[in-house]
């Protein structure tokens, strides 16, 4: 039932937290955190998921590597149903997650030990760990920090360490669940360029969950989620030309895009969406 190059498939997925472990800010009522979710992510795709705080984004992320199992519907990761416990570790190995708070996902007391943590869990032989740790740390630019204690890293460096920890496990897909929310602009740019690079070079599927619009303007595809439902999907151009939906979901247009949107309303070459500064300059100077 799965198409060959689909990496993740959601089939009519709903999820409801039990009142007992109703996490983040839910009232303890049995509300559905997400409902009726249908979508697919292709192998090697770079997908952005946008939504306001509490829209269900994190729940969606956790459904992708079997940290949560759907209340109804099915999630397939590379053809494996997350419901099937025998696939659990295979799924988690192939879908790595980077979370929001840099401090709460580093386990070990030195940088290299933390990268090793995932490998130890997988039972990777020791001789193989050394090169894998080396590679992963140099991809994220932390090779010279190997013996440092995580406490002395900046927030951005901690998130890069978290990425290295996942990379060492050789995932097919990385889900970033608001991983840039607590970083300064420099740290954020660095993370985004690293994952973009991983997507281009290593063909790793990237699912970027965020509410920073400038991070997603060159994604392959975007989804807007609100009140637990996907309310819009499409290319960044398609998404950001629909200002009403974007703003209605508690989001905003990227600044340059907003400028051109307003001009568009004046009747100046409507129907075109300008997402980046470069595109804006080209639009105005007529270089096409």
């Amino acid at each position: 039932m799965m198409e060959a190059n689909n990496f993740i498939e959601f089939h009519n997925v709903s999820f409801r937290y039990d009142s007992a472990d109703s996490g983040d800010g839910e009232d303890g009522e049995n509300v559905f955190a997400v409902s009726g979710i249908d979508f697919t992510v292709k192998q090697g795709e770079f997908v952005g998921i946008l939504g306001r705080n509490g829209s269900g984004k994190s729940t969606l992320a956790k459904l992708m590597n079997a940290l949560l199992i759907p209340t109804s519907g099915d999630v397939y990761v590379n053809g494996m149903n997350t419901r099937d416990a025998s696939w659990l570790w295979e799924i988690r190995k192939s879908v790595g997650m980077i979370f929001q708070n840099p401090d709460n996902q580093i386990v070990a007391s030195t940088v290299e030990d933390d990268v090793a943590f995932g490998l130890e869990n997988l039972g990777v032989p020791r001789e193989e760990m050394e090169p894998r740790i080396n590679d992963a740390l140099s991809v994220v630019g932390l090779a010279d920090r190997r013996l440092k204690e995580p406490h002395y890293l900046s927030g951005g460096q901690k998130q890069r360490l978290a990425i290295a920890g996942i990379l060492a496990m050789r995932p097919s897909c990385i889900v970033l669940d608001e991983s840039t929310a607590m970083l300064d602009p420099k740290g954020r740019d660095r993370i985004i360029s690293i994952v973009r690079e991983l997507n281009l070079r290593e063909k790793i599927t990237i699912i970027l969950i965020t509410h920073h619009m400038d991070e997603v303007v060159d994604c392959d595809r975007l989804f807007i989620i609100d009140k637990g439902r996907i309310i819009k999907s499409g290319t960044p151009g398609e998404i950001f030309s629909d200002e009403e939906t974007v703003v209605g979901a508690g989001l905003e247009l990227p600044p340059v895009c907003e400028l051109f949107q307003r001009l568009g309303l004046l009747g100046l070459r409507p129907g075109e969406t300008v997402l980046t500064k470069e595109a804006g300059v080209e639009f105005l100077t007529g270089v096409r």
């Binding site: 940290l67 570790w89 988690r92 386990v107 943590f117 130890e120 869990n121 996942i166 496990m169």
Partner: peptide
């Protein structure tokens, strides 16, 4: 949650880096 998503499942079957 972070440990679980990095395949931590207790001491069984674990190898050691150091």
């Amino acid at each position: 949650v972070a440990m679980e998503s990095r395949c931590y499942r207790g001491g069984k079957g674990r190898t050691k880096f150091k």
